[in-house]
Amino acid sequence: MKIRDFLIGVATGVAATIIIKETANRVSPYVPANHVLNNVKAAFKKEAPIDGSWIYMKTEDFYNGVTTVPVYKGGISRIMNGEMESFEFAADARSGIIVDLKRL
Score class of each variant (00 low, 15 high):
Lys2Trp: 10
Val99Asp: 10
Arg94Glu: 09
Tyr72Ala: 05
Leu37Pro: 00
Glu88Pro: 01
Val36Thr: 02
Tyr56Ala: 09
Ser95Lys: 05
Asp5Leu: 12
Thr17Gly: 15
Tyr63Ile: 07
Ala90Ile: 10
Glu83Ala: 11
Pro32Arg: 03
Val71Gln: 04
Arg4Pro: 02
Glu83Asn: 13
Ala91Phe: 05
Val66His: 14
Ile98Phe: 04
Ile3Phe: 12
Met80Trp: 09
Gly52Lys: 12
Glu22Ile: 15
Lys46Asp: 10
Gly65Asn: 02
Thr17Trp: 14
Ala48Lys: 05
Glu88Gly: 10
Ala24Trp: 07
Val14Glu: 05
Phe62Asn: 03
Val99Pro: 06
Arg26Lys: 13
Thr59Cys: 00
Ile79His: 08
Ala16Trp: 03
His35Phe: 07
Ala33Lys: 01
Phe6Asn: 08
Lys45Cys: 06
Ile19Thr: 15
Ser95Ile: 08
Phe44Ser: 02
Asn25Lys: 14
Gly52Cys: 05
Gly9Val: 09
Thr17Phe: 15
Asp100Thr: 12
Phe89Ala: 03
Gly74Asn: 04
Ser28Met: 05
Ala91Asp: 08
Asp100Gly: 10
Glu47Pro: 01
Glu47Val: 11
Ile18Lys: 11
Ile97Gly: 12
Ile19Arg: 08
Pro49Met: 02
Phe87Gln: 04
Lys41Thr: 02
His35Glu: 11
Gly82Asp: 03
Met57Ser: 11
Lys41Trp: 00
Val14Cys: 11
Gly75His: 03
Lys46Thr: 12
Ala16Asp: 07
Leu101Asp: 06
Ala42Pro: 01
Ile55Thr: 00
Asp51Gln: 12
Leu37Ala: 00
Gly52His: 13
Trp54Cys: 07
Ile18Gln: 10
Val99Ser: 09
Lys21Cys: 13
Lys102Met: 12
Phe62Gly: 01
Phe89Tyr: 10
Ala15Gly: 09
Gly74Lys: 01
Val36Trp: 00
Thr12Tyr: 08
Ala16Pro: 04
Val14Pro: 03
Asn64Ser: 06
Lys41Ile: 09
Asn34Trp: 04
Pro29Cys: 00
Ala90Trp: 12
Arg4His: 13
Val71Ile: 15
Ala15Tyr: 09
Ile18Glu: 06
Tyr72Gln: 06
Gly75Asp: 04
Phe44Gly: 01
Gly52Glu: 12
Gly65Ser: 03
Glu47Lys: 12
Gly74Ser: 08
Met84Asn: 11
Glu85His: 13
Asp100Arg: 15
Met80Pro: 02
Thr17Met: 15
Lys45Asp: 11
Val14Gly: 06
Glu47Ala: 13
Phe44Trp: 01
Ala11Trp: 12
Lys73Cys: 07
Gly52Gln: 11
Glu22Trp: 08
Pro70Ala: 05
Gly82Ala: 06
Ile20Phe: 12
Tyr72Asn: 01
Val27Arg: 04
Thr23Met: 08
Ile3Glu: 15
Ile8Ala: 15
Met57Lys: 14
Thr68Asp: 04
Tyr72Met: 04
Leu101Cys: 06
Ser95Leu: 05
Ile3Ala: 13
Glu47Asp: 13
Thr23Leu: 10
Lys102Ile: 15
Phe89Gly: 01
Thr59Tyr: 00
Asp100Cys: 09
Gly52Ser: 15
Thr12Phe: 14
Arg4Met: 09
Lys46Ile: 11
Ser53His: 03
Gly74Val: 04
Ile50Gln: 01
Asn25Gly: 02
Pro70Asn: 02
Ala43Asp: 10
Ala15Leu: 15
Lys41Glu: 06
Ala24Met: 09
Lys41Leu: 07
Leu7Met: 14
Glu83Ile: 11
Ile98Leu: 09
Ala24Arg: 07
Gly75Glu: 03
